[in-house]
Simulated scan of single mutants.
Amino acid sequence: MRAWKDRRVLRGRIHGRLLLVLIAVAVLVSAVAVWQFGSLRDDHDPDLAEAEIPEGPRFTGAAESPTPSPSPSPPETPESSAAPTSAAPTTEAEAPPTTEAAAAGPQCTATLTLDDEWSSSISVTVEVANTGTDPIDGWEVLLDLANLDVTATWGLDHVEGDRYGDILFNAALDPGSSTAPSFQADIEGDWELPATVPCTPAE
């Protein structure tokens, strides 16, 4: 009797579970049917079509400005009948042509060049050149050198004081030619050799 009751209870439980499964399946089928129905309605319902929105009037960015009317031009005045006055002609005074007189007569220059320098003396070359237009027959140079005492010369003749002149073989110089005598001097203090010294051609 008890076994029969247990079977009955077991069958009731199985039937209850089957009922729950059937209910769940029915709910799922109903949901699928509703979803399919909604999809078909959206595909065939003309009310869901997008309505075209009419375009409104278009406006440009800037408003057209009215064109200003041209201003009236002033009336033309008649030309003056007076004849134009001409300026008085100016005359420029012509300067008389100037001519530079060429340096005439004998001329010479004397240039000093340091050849050697020792502790107490120096050796210097004197280049005498005829820079004039006439030949010269003799010349004289002035060796006024501060703190330098001339002790020996070659191609120079001691005239007087600081004056030294030519000797026979280098006296005559044609225009543009030169000669190069030399001298030796003792150093007596701070000295500086000038670039040139006075040169006087013989008269």
Rank of each mutant, 00 (worst) to 15 (best):
T99L: 12
A104W: 01
I53W: 06
V126F: 01
G38C: 09
T133Q: 11
T151V: 15
G189T: 02
L168A: 15
D162F: 09
G176T: 01
K5G: 13
D134I: 02
D157L: 11
L114Q: 15
S182V: 00
D190Q: 03
C199T: 04
S69W: 08
E188V: 10
L156I: 03
P198I: 07
D149Y: 07
V32P: 00
L168Y: 13
T98D: 07
G155E: 10
K5Y: 10
V197L: 06
G138V: 04
G165W: 04
S71H: 09
Q36E: 07
R11C: 06
F169K: 03
S123D: 13
W35C: 02
A3Y: 07
P74S: 05
V197Y: 05
T153H: 05
C108L: 00
P72R: 12
E76S: 07
V21C: 13
G12C: 09
G12Y: 10
W35F: 07
P89Q: 03
L28H: 04
F59P: 00
T133V: 14
G56R: 12
H158S: 14
H44V: 01
L143A: 08
L173T: 03
V126S: 06
E52W: 00
E203H: 05
W4C: 12
R2L: 14
V197T: 06
E50I: 08
